[in-house]
Simulated assay, not measured.
Amino acid sequence: MTKPSIPVGIICSQHGPYQAMGREILKSTLMAVDEINNQAEFDFTVTAHVRDPRGVIAEYHTVCDDLIRNVGVEHIIGCYTSASRKQVLPIVERTDRLLWYPARYEGFECSDNVIYVGASPNHNVLPLVRYVLDNLSREIFCVGSNYVWTWETNRVTRELVTASGGRIVAERLLELGESAVGHIVDEIVRRRPPVVFNTLVGSSSYDFIRAFHAATTAAGLDIPMLSCSLCEPELKIVGSASAGCITSSAYFESIRLPENRAFVARWKARYGDDSSPSVDGQSAYVAVYLLARALQRAGASNIGEVRRAAAGFRYNSPQGPVWIDGGNNHCVLTPRLAVSNADGQFDIFWEADAPVKPDPYLTQLDVAVSPARDGASPNAPHLRVVK
């Protein structure tokens, strides 16, 4: 008996300034689709309808409209940047479709028509900044791409830092895809800030990391770089200059869980031993499985029924236990901190003791940054060394 097929839209740029990450999202998505289509437990198959906006922001709306009007999809997986998500958001809300968004993002959004599978700011920005304040410095130099991800991440960082008595040394922004990074690197070398927080995206970030490494090495400076987005495929793109970056993420290839070891083995069997899954790609993989299991439980593709079936359903994913908080459509995830090494991998040095509930609006932020009587941060994460 032939299983019925459910059309699912996949939107990710295969060209443009962040094509590398778009391709990683597509690879992970198609891998999950193939796995689901070959499993007897599902009484349907998934047909992937892929669209490439080519990194052109306005094209995301166009291809989303095409998928809904001409293909009839009710579920869409994809978008990498918040700028692209905000192009898609109005149309999925107007037509009552569901976007499964895999990327970590800046928070301060909650739509009934979006499942936010990637990290919320309390999963990545807060643990990273708290670690810096406790262990490195109370002064941070920020450089990022000129769009909402950087704006909001810098705002949250500024609130945490100033509440602790520190300061943001500078905020420097570049347009998406901009490669002229020399003036910012020159300023960093001249001012010698204790820490640099990099929220650049795609090729801009790669150019900056290489130039930063060359200039600080030549000047004999040891300035730690921070990131909430750098991942293993990007380490390979950048090369040796990427070593030593302190990164906050819910997923690293080096996670020592049986589910992740099996996932990485399947990944390498499919894409080659020299390849590595990315955090956003792994989240897209998780999104496909969360969707498929919700479809199975709901017995229909109607988004209201699927959303209800998805809420609270626990999935032991490669990154650990994941489930959707039905109150805000964001995922419960386990925050981690790691440092990149010369082998193009990350050495994890901290992870939360248990999965953390998403807090996209940072409702606990005021409490988190209020100084305790002894001057310590009252809600600073307990640092548990991972061996």
Rank of each mutant, 00 (worst) to 15 (best):
A218T: 06
S242L: 07
F212G: 02
P318V: 04
F212V: 02
M225T: 11
S278R: 13
A218F: 02
A262G: 08
S205T: 03
A298G: 08
G327Y: 09
N260V: 10
I303T: 14
R261G: 01
Y251G: 06
N302P: 00
D325M: 04
A211R: 13
G272W: 12
I209A: 00
V238N: 00
R314I: 12
P318Y: 05
V322T: 14
A342S: 15
N302W: 09
E259M: 10
Q319T: 10
A219M: 02
S317F: 07
V286E: 09
E232K: 12
S254L: 04
S205G: 09
N341E: 12
S340R: 11
A300K: 13
S278I: 12
L290K: 15
V306S: 03
A342H: 15
A269N: 13
S317I: 09
A310G: 11
R314K: 11
P335S: 10
R293G: 02
L333H: 06
D347N: 13
A309D: 01
D343C: 04
A269K: 15
A284N: 07
P233L: 03
A284P: 08
A311H: 11
D325H: 06
S249E: 12
R270N: 12
N341T: 15
I255T: 05
A211T: 07
D222I: 04
A311R: 04
W350N: 05
V322Q: 00
A243T: 10
L291P: 08
R210S: 03
Q296M: 10
V238Q: 01
F313S: 06
R336I: 11
G299R: 00
Y289L: 13
I237G: 01
G281S: 09
L257M: 10
A310V: 08
